[in-house]
Design a protein around this nucleic acid. Structure first.
Length: 903
RNA sequence: GGACCCUUAGCUCAGUUGGUUAGAGCGCUUCCUUGACAUGGAAGAGGUCACUGGUUCGAGUCCAGUAGGGUCCACCA
């Protein structure tokens, strides 16, 4: 067996094992009816993406779940892939074209799309390579892409089906228009931003009453040429006599526009009069419909004012146009006032420019299965972790609006609708809707628009498993793996993606079957958002996101994984701190060295299976520490199990950290050093170490797969030619049962004994430190045991305790004069200073301790004296308080005696 | 304008149905290269659990309110 080197070199180990895992095809998800399935579909990152800290967190959690499932004997399958990310990808390629002073229109649609494919083959999907460095155990043979031919057909199939079922319609409506990318956006792609602008008070002269004006307040004076009316509230007395009259438009082509009454107007806001510009505002559009007003569009799709706006404004970009409009209004005297004004403006999430409400023909989806989607979560068929996100989800579904699914882009799934050439496109009689198109294509023209990217990724959990083609479903193991077990994602895409996937699954999968067979996943785990040290979101533009690959180089993939999980409590945002990643690396180093020490301690027998190690235990040789460490091993195993059930990964990591570092390394391995010197106890002690290490490696494997695999191999656990993931994790009760079968009755009371010994040792060390003897190992202690049982405990563990306390000897002595002392649970411990005791300092120290103790005693006494407490509190709590009081009082008596002895 | 979350040690955070003297990591102080690990070990310092009330024998934990921070939703020009 290879020797464990002095320090862990993550780089070589990671490369070696990842290649070995792939070679052995250990990540393949296979259909195996004898085992439970456990499947996860990756939230497909943008094909343009590179690995961010968010991806690290998200994918580490998925890998943890998948690897744990394998250890528990499930057939695990993690399906990877990427998203074609319409706007993002198109923008990247257009940016490259711009460097050559070209636009996509110069190339034409076909050539441009070819160009995007070229880009995708050269540079797309880097992120999937990066995930391998992180250790992601995806079934790479299943890698999917939303623009793959097969996946694309499924997307189109869904469109055609939804169209047939009456959920899709074409309509001219107000949409969120992005003037930068020149496409419609869904409501979800618009983010509101507070903007400091101006509110302009503009007056319109009443047509037949020269000198009389109606004033409105507007933030958008450049749209005045598109005004078609002034609206006031029907009950507003200020304007009652004006309703039905006309005013002169204040800017642009001269026109007289009516004053109308509409209750949509808020009397309290501004002047109580509202200019109506149906082409450029959603509310105005609705008012316009109600009053059958014309629509005057004054903007080009790219946000430039058009000829309709009049010669003074035409050709100006919208913000320049606004400035010019204000100047013109001021010159004409129509501008009454201008005040600073902060309001919320909708921005295009991608392009980061204000969107324009714009009236266009688009394709819309009336969501299917809305009620059922609510029920799926409300009734617990799908569980959200943390649960509170279900409220956000339900609220959105309560207020759901139709989804604008068409995009005026070239990169994406082209909508499978054909229009009869030369015929009226608005008449469905002239449409052909099918996946493959009409039989006589020469008579038809295909719709130019493509589908919103999310209108393809909402099918991800079943379209990646071959749906709807029977043969492909069988090949992919659809029946076995659907529904998937857990979705791991960020709460920011709960509407974009999570809710929509649920509706899609319910609509399309296994029609007629119960809801739990149709849902796409059983659990949704929402990660927190990773922020920088100042609490800001990590983003490319701020440059505050570290490169995960640098962190892997520096701390190892395992260090990064362990570190990021340890700071990611359930559902809370995460402040990134590099020192926690360093902590992850340090933990790996600790694990490495504990295993190294075990190896250096010598071979002790068969390590190749759990039962083989168990057979090496000798119950007759067990001392308190042996009982205690196995008890802690079992409780840690149970705790980690609970954490997985409750999706509390950072708690699991903390439990393992505390057990391994605190209980095993700091105490058990240290006491082992004394035990291993005696041939009599050595073999049993090493067997226990092997048992603990084996179980600890298994429990840690999902979090830190590389180093655990390496150590598993180096320590000879498992059968030759197998991997750690081929082993099965023993649960706590099975370990206990197997131990019992070996004649080993785990004695839990020994845990308390060890706690006493730890306190005893710790107090001895503190006593040394207070007298500046911390580094001396030749000091002697005297002990006056509390009782004979205490002495028996000390005596039975004397060699270990003496060594742990850093003492030459600990002797029983029933009366000691003039020595610094401390009262421990096992008795009074004296430091043998032979002569030079500073009585004053010693008295001060003891008095301080006595004072603190007196406070606690007073508190406990007060509680017990309270009749209400003794009447109402549970018996166990009262009993605990009594015992505590007795212990405290005994300690006080001893401290008082010591003080008295000092004089 | 609604909804949700957060406020605990210098920093970042745990604290699971209310129950002994509130924990961890990092940082800080002192000491230590004792037969794995200085990426380490030992001993310490450091908290009126944001504030104000309430419920209770008992509140960091439950309730109400206040203040501060954050997120999401919402067509007031």
């Amino acid at each position: 067996m290879a020797e464990i080197t002095k320090s862990y070199e993550s780089r070589d180990v990671e490369r070696k094992w990842y290649a070995a895992w792939l070679e052995a095809r250990r990540f393949s998800g296979v259909v195996d009816p004898a085992r439970e399935p456990y499947s996860i579909v990756i939230p497909p990152p943008n094909v343009t993406g590179v690995l961010t800290m968010g991806h690290v967190l998200n994918n580490t959690i998925q890998d943890i779940l998948i690897r744990r499932a394998r250890l528990e004997g499930c057939s695990a399958m993690w399906l990877p892939g990427t998203d074609h990310a319409g706007i993002a990808t198109q923008t990247v390629v257009e940016r490259e074209l711009r460097k050559q002073k070209k636009t996509r229109r110069d190339l034409g649609r076909e050539k441009f799309v070819e160009r995007v494919w070229e880009w995708r083959h050269e540079k797309g999907g880097i992120i999937l390579e990066q995930l391998r460095r992180l250790g992601a155990s995806c079934d790479w043979d299943r890698t999917a892409f939303t623009m793959d031919p097969a996946y694309s057909r499924r997307v189109l199939h869904v469109f055609v089906e939804l169209f047939k079922r009456g959920h899709i319609y074409r309509g001219k409506r107000m949409v969120n228009w992005c003037p930068a990318t020149q496409t419609a956006l869904s409501d979800e792609e618009v983010i509101m931003k507070p903007v400091n602008g101006s509110l302009y008070r503009v007056r319109y002269e009443v047509a037949d009453q020269p000198g009389r004006f109606v004033e409105v307040k507007t933030t958008r004076p450049e749209t005045i040429p598109g005004d078609v009316a002034i609206a006031v509230h029907p009950d507003d007395p200020r304007y009652a006599d004006l309703i039905g009259k006309k005013v002169r438009r204040a800017l642009g082509p001269a026109a007289e526009i009516p004053i109308i009454a509409d209750s949509a107007v808020d009397r309290e806001f501004g002047t109580g009069a509202l200019k109506i510009t149906p082409a450029h505002d959603k509310v105005d559009y609705d008012v316009g419909l109600r009053h059958k007003l014309p629509i005057i569009d004054v903007l080009e799709p790219n946000g430039v004012l058009n000829a309709v706006a009049g010669p003074a404004l035409a050709g100006l970009e919208r913000f320049a146009g606004r400035k010019r409009a204000v100047e013109l209004l001021r010159e004409s005297g129509a501008l009454v006032a201008e005040e600073p004004y902060a309001n919320n403006v909708g921005y295009s999430e991608r392009a980061d420019v204000p969107i324009e409400p714009r009236l266009t023909e688009q394709w819309w989806l009336r969501y299917p299965r809305v009620e059922e989607a609510k029920a799926a979560v409300r009734d617990g068929h799908i569980k959200f972790h943390p649960e509170r996100w279900s409220k956000v989800y339900l609220h959105w579904l309560e207020n759901i609006q139709d989804w604008c699914i068409s995009r005026q882009l070239w990169w994406g799934h082209r909508i499978p609708v054909w229009y009869r050439k030369g015929a009226d496109r608005s008449d469905p009689k002239n449409w052909h809707v099918s996946v493959d198109g009409p039989a006589d294509p020469e008579n038809w023209e295909q719709e130019e628009d493509v589908l919103d990217t999310w209108a393809s990724s909402w099918l991800w959990p079943f379209a990646t498993l071959g749906w709807p083609d029977e043969a492909e479903m069988k090949a992919a193991g659809f029946d076995y793996f659907y529904p998937t077990a857990t979705l791991v994602t960020g709460p920011d895409i709960i509407f974009f993606w999570v809710a929509r996937m649920i509706m899609a699954g319910l609509e399309f999968v296994r029609p007629g079957e119960p809801i739990e067979r149709r849902i796409p996943f059983q659990n949704v785990y929402f990660t927190g958002i990773i922020r920088d040290a100042q609490g800001r979101k990590m983003s490319k533009s701020l440059g505050n996101s570290p490169d995960p690959l640098d962190l892997i180089d520096k701390y190892g993939a395992d260090g990064l994984r362990f570190g990021i999980i340890s700071i990611a409590p359930q559902g809370q945002d995460i402040r990134f701190q590099e020192d926690r990643i360093e902590g992850g690396k340090n933990f790996c180093n600790k694990l490495w060295n504990a295993c190294r020490f075990r190896q250096l301690s010598g071979e002790a027998g068969d390590n190749s299976s759990f039962n083989a190690i168990l057979a090496r235990l000798d119950p007759a040789k067990f001392d308190a520490d042996d009982h205690a460490i196995l008890d802690r091993l079992l409780s840690t195993t149970r705790e980690v199990n609970r954490c997985f059930n409750d999706f509390e990964f950072s708690a699991a990591v903390q439990a393992l950290y505390g057990f391994f570092w605190g209980d095993f390394c700091d105490w058990y391995v240290e006491v082992s050093k004394a035990k291993m010197q005696a041939e009599d106890t050595k073999a049993n002690c090493l067997a226990i170490q092997d048992l603990v290490l084996r179980q600890t490696l298994l429990l840690l494997l999902p979090f830190i797969p590389f180093i655990t695999e390496e150590l598993w191999s180096l320590l000879g656990f498992g059968e030759p030619g197998t991997f750690i993931q081929d082993a099965r994790l023993e649960n706590a009760s099975r370990i206990a049962t197997s131990s019992l079968a070996r004649g080993l009755v785990l004695d839990r009371t020994q845990v308390t004994t060890v706690e006493w010994l730890k306190t005893f040792v710790s107090q001895a060390r503190a006593l040394k430190a207070e007298h500046n003897l911390a580094s001396r190992r030749d000091v002697k202690f005297f002990v006056t045991p509390r009782d004979e049982a205490a002495w028996a405990t000390i005596e039975a563990n004397l060699a270990k305790v003496t060594r742990m306390a850093g003492a030459e000897a600990i002797e029983r002595r029933d009366a000691v004069e003039n020595a610094p002392a401390v009262v421990t649970p096992l008795g009074t411990l004296y430091l043998d200073l032979a002569s030079s005791v500073d009585a004053g300092a010693e008295r001060a120290r003891l008095t301080k301790e006595l004072d603190a103790l007196a406070k606690h005693i007073a508190g406990t006494e007060a509680r017990l004296a309270n009749k209400a407490f003794t009447d109402k509190a549970p018996a166990a709590v009262i009993e605990g308080a009594r015992k505590q009081l007795a212990d405290q009082q005994a300690k006080r008596t001893e401290l008082e005696r010591l003080l008295k002895a000092l004089g």
